[in-house]
């Protein structure tokens, strides 16, 4: 869970009084200034080399040296994984670079996300109706997460569950199953009759054409046609 970061803020470390900046070479200084000027967005190595107009071998050496001196750090850019991206050490990389709280090392952390989503879902199904605070409290007590989760993060997870059609968002009317929840408060309910699983399969999506990726290329007498369709053949192969 340590991989869950706090939403990034532009934390600025106080520079040391005996700053390693003093000991930089000319090229190191140029490169450092280019990287630093990009603040929390940082810069891709090749772009940096172009801007700084420093020969490749010199730049590589300088980057290594700056890293050892802890003036810059390499971060994973979620958009360009595998490409070297640098940020000045005094900045926390922006969420555009890291992906935000649910990313770790440039990848979305599905293991953590799925465990947490599942916990939220279990709680909602157990309670039938639950509020965000209730869910957060339950997850805290369960001890499943060793990192302090925020209400915002729980809300993100539950909203995704709504989009999955696993739960529905409703407003309390203070009656019946809502009697312990103030009127008008947003809460989450299990979907129809408490049964989990995929939504109803529609008439269209239960036949080959409904799920066919090539339906727009299919014509009655074309190369792709209902007569030649291999999906139909599979479907009708009893």
């Amino acid at each position: 869970m340590s991989r869950l970061q706090e939403p990034s803020s532009l934390k600025r470390k106080q520079p040391d009084s005996r700053s390693p900046l003093d000991s930089l070479t000319e090229h190191e200084r140029i490169i450092y200034n280019v990287i630093r000027s990009k603040q929390d967005m940082g810069i891709w190595m090749q772009d940096m080399k172009r801007v700084a107009k420093v020969p490749d071998n010199v730049a590589n050496k300088a980057l290594k040296s700056l890293e050892t001196k802890k003036l810059i750090k390499e971060v994973v850019n979620i958009q360009k994984r595998g490409k070297k991206h640098y940020v000045a050490a005094e900045f926390e990389p922006a969420t555009e670079i890291t992906g935000g709280a649910w990313y770790s090392n440039g990848k979305m952390d599905f293991v953590v996300i799925n465990i947490l989503k599942d916990q939220c879902l279990k709680w909602i199904y157990k309670q039938r109706v639950a509020t965000l605070e209730g869910i957060l409290d339950a997850i805290r007590k369960s001890g499943i997460s060793n990192v302090e989760l925020t209400t915002v993060q729980i809300e993100e997870l539950v909203r995704a569950l709504v989009l999955d059609n696993e739960v529905v968002e409703v407003k309390s009317n203070g009656m019946g199953e809502f009697d312990s929840i103030p009127v008008g408060k947003v809460c989450y309910k299990s979907t129809s009759k408490g049964s989990r699983g995929d939504p109803k399969i529609g008439a269209m999506s239960s036949i080959p054409c409904g799920v066919c990726p090539r339906i727009s290329d299919c014509t009655p007498d074309g190369i792709i046609s209902p007569k030649t369709c291999k999906y139909y053949s599979q479907w009708l192969d009893f």
Partner: peptide, 9 residues
């Protein structure tokens, strides 16, 4: 009905 198509396709 439409969502079901999107899900399956």
């Amino acid at each position: 009905e439409v969502e079901s198509i999107v899900l399956r396709r």
